[in-house]
Design a protein around this nucleic acid. Structure first.
Length: 257
DNA sequence: ATGTCAAGAAAATCTTGA
């Protein structure tokens, strides 16, 4: 079973790239982030013609996440990260697919660090910690997938010294990511490739992709049950080089399931 | 600091967020 996560950076403007990627790679599950479109603008017809069913939560202009699934039922859907009914940002979806609990998340960027946006990021992380712990009580494989907006370590940035004061790399942010690992979640890509240079995002500025000036900020975190099923993982790097593409590339894992 | 994208407001460029 192949599960992918892809920050599409606007599903309307990236639809051709999304459909091209789905046709080429045929993931069983695709977690999408940054739809940047309200619910009613979700291109369900095109997604279904590509062979997928979907659940999504949209939002005008910003955020928005979706779960695309081919060939399996989507059950027990949770829309929105539990814990704050006042939070109106569409950043979180959960569902069970083929017996696996899959969370699609778009963590807040948080810049500029120090300020209300950074506070929101840390508060969101705290709520996510609570939910991630709850999920460990389920007797299911759990996969946390998405754009975490976290550079976990120096090895995950082309020039880490440039990011020391950025919300993606601040000590508070890295500590919050480390806390998830301490609860019992494993960073799948780093687990299988301890020493590799792996990037999932390249800035549109200054020809970053062609210089491979990237960051690793899209992640798969697996509980022990999911980790025992893990077969392989990677990044569809070439998609970042396509015309009218997102600034992120799709990331994928395969599970023996 | 640099300078790329796309959407929205509003009416051609400017602002915003990433």
């Amino acid at each position: 079973m192949k599960i992918a996560t892809y920050n599409v950076n606007g599903i309307s403007s990236r639809l051709p790239v999304l459909l091209r990627w789905l046709a080429k790679e045929q993931p069983d599950v695709a977690c999408l982030q940054e739809l940047k479109a309200p619910d009613e603008k979700f291109p369900l017809m095109d997604i279904q013609l590509a062979g997928y069913e979907a659940v999504w939560i949209g939002q005008k202009s910003w955020n928005g996440v979706a779960l695309l699934v081919k060939g399996y039922e989507i059950t027990n859907v949770v829309k929105g990260l539990p814990g704050d009914p006042a939070d109106e940002q569409s950043r979180y979806l959960e569902a069970t697919v083929n017996g696996i609990r899959i969370c699609c998340l778009y963590l807040p960027n948080g810049n500029p660090a120090q300020g209300p946006k950074f506070d929101y990021k840390l508060a969101w992380f705290k709520r996510f910690h609570y939910r991630a712990k709850e999920l460990l009580q389920l007797k299911l494989p759990v996969v946390l997938a998405g754009d975490f907006n976290v550079i976990p370590a120096e090895a995950d940035a082309y020039k880490p010294e440039r990011w020391v004061n950025d919300a993606l790399f601040r000590p508070e942010t890295r500590a919050a990511f480390e806390a998830l690992k301490a609860f019992g979640y494993t960073d799948a890509l780093r687990h299988l490739n301890p020493d590799a240079v792996i990037y999932t995002y390249w800035d549109y500025f200054r020809d970053a992709y062609n210089r491979n000036a990237g960051l690793r900020i899209d992640h798969f975190l697996l509980n022990d049950s999911a980790l025992s099923l893990l077969q392989s993982a990677g990044v569809h790097t070439q998609v970042r080089g396509w015309e009218k593409t997102s600034d992120h590339a799709p990331v994928w894992i395969t599970l023996q399931a």
